[in-house]
Simulated assay, not measured.
Amino acid sequence: MRYTSLTDFLKSNHAKRAPSPLAMVFVEDTAEIDTTARHHQQAGFQSILMFMPSNFDLAPDVDATVIRIDHDLTKDAPLADVVNGVIDTVPDKSWVYYCYNTEYLFHPFCETRSVGEMLTFHGEERRDAMLTYVVDLYADDLHASPNAVSLENAHLDRSGYYALARKTSEGHPKERQLDFFGGLRWRYEEHVPANRRKIDRISLFKTAPGLKLREDFTFNKEELNTYACPWHHNITAAVCSFRTAKALKRNPGSTFDIETFKWHNSAPFEWHSRQLLDLGLMEPGQWF
C-alpha cells in the first residue's frame, strides 16, 4: 500500500488500525533500504511503515508487504513531527519503533525470540519505553565501499563507550537517566556537532495520549527516558547503524580526513545478539 503524503496516511484506516508492534523506517538515501525493511519484518514487527522520497525504489517483495508513505526528510516534516503524528493516530498503547535505513535493531536473544515477546515481557515489568544504544557500524575497506556500508564486512568498536549524568536545567542529575557516548561520534567528535554526539535513543515506546518525541530522541514524560525502573535492571536493545559512518564519508569537511574507520579496537560485526551482550552494548535485565 502506498500513500502520497503523511497527511493522507494519518487519515487512513491503515494508521488508525495499525497492529502492534509497529516499525517506522525513515529513508534518507538509497543504501540498504530493502534489507532494513526485511530485517525488521523478520524481527517480528507486525506493521512496517516506510517513509521515503517518491523517486526511491523498493524490491517487489518488500513493496508488497510494507506501507509506503512518500516523505522526504530534507523537505517535509522532520522525524519527530512524523513520529508524533503517528503517536496521535495509531491505537493507544501500541508499541512503536523508529529508525533510519541502514539501521538494524538487535535485542537480547533475538535469534530465537521475537520483538513482540520481548515487549510483552517489558510491559509486564510496567515499562512503557526501552532504551537503545546506537552502535556504529562501518565497512572495513572504504575504497571497496566508499559510502562506508558493507553488510558482509561490517565492523564495530568493541570499547570506548561511556556515560555521563544527564542534568536538569538547574544542573541537578536526573534520576535514572544518563547520556551515553562512544563509537564514531566519539572518535571523530571534531566533525560532529555537540548536540548530536549522544548514542542513546528511546527507540521503542508505547503510545499514550499527550506523549511527544523531542528532537533529541527523548520524550516529554521523563519516566520514559530512564534506563531502568527503580527496582532492578531492565532490558535494553541496540540499533546497529551505518548512519554515522555514511555521514562522515559524505561530509566534505570530514571525508578526506578518514581513510579507514578501523582502529585497534575494531572487531568484525557478527550480526548476532551474543556479541552485543558480551560487549555490554545491551542488557537482558530479568529476561532469561
Rank of each mutant, 00 (worst) to 15 (best):
1 M>T: 14
1 M>C: 05
3 Y>M: 01
3 Y>W: 08
6 L>F: 04
9 F>I: 04
12 S>V: 05
13 N>D: 12
16 K>I: 00
16 K>D: 00
21 P>D: 03
35 T>L: 05
35 T>M: 05
36 T>R: 06
37 A>W: 01
37 A>C: 15
38 R>I: 06
38 R>F: 07
42 Q>L: 09
43 A>M: 12
45 F>V: 07
53 P>K: 08
57 D>I: 04
59 A>K: 11
61 D>N: 13
63 D>K: 15
64 A>V: 00
64 A>Y: 08
66 V>H: 03
70 D>Q: 13
70 D>H: 15
72 D>F: 09
76 D>H: 15
77 A>Y: 07
78 P>N: 10
78 P>C: 02
80 A>L: 00
81 D>N: 12
82 V>W: 03
83 V>W: 01
84 N>M: 05
85 G>I: 07
87 I>Q: 12
90 V>Q: 11
90 V>R: 11
104 Y>L: 02
107 H>D: 00
107 H>R: 04
111 E>M: 06
114 S>P: 08
114 S>W: 05
121 F>Q: 09
122 H>K: 06
125 E>Y: 05
126 R>E: 11
126 R>V: 02
129 A>K: 10
133 Y>I: 08
134 V>K: 11
135 V>R: 03
146 P>S: 03
146 P>N: 11
149 V>H: 07
149 V>G: 06
151 L>K: 13
156 L>R: 09
157 D>A: 13
161 Y>P: 13
164 L>C: 12
165 A>P: 14
173 P>H: 04
174 K>R: 15
174 K>C: 07
176 R>L: 10
182 G>R: 11
182 G>I: 05
186 W>D: 14
188 Y>E: 02
189 E>I: 00
190 E>K: 15
195 N>P: 08
200 D>W: 14
200 D>Q: 15
203 S>V: 03
207 T>W: 04
208 A>H: 07
213 L>R: 15
214 R>D: 03
219 F>I: 01
221 K>S: 00
228 A>C: 10
229 C>M: 02
233 H>R: 15
235 I>C: 13
236 T>H: 10
236 T>K: 05
238 A>T: 12
240 C>S: 06
240 C>A: 13
240 C>F: 02
241 S>R: 07
243 R>Q: 09
243 R>T: 08
244 T>H: 10
246 K>R: 15
247 A>C: 02
248 L>E: 07
260 T>A: 11
261 F>D: 06
264 H>C: 00
267 A>T: 15
272 H>Y: 08
280 G>E: 08
285 G>P: 14
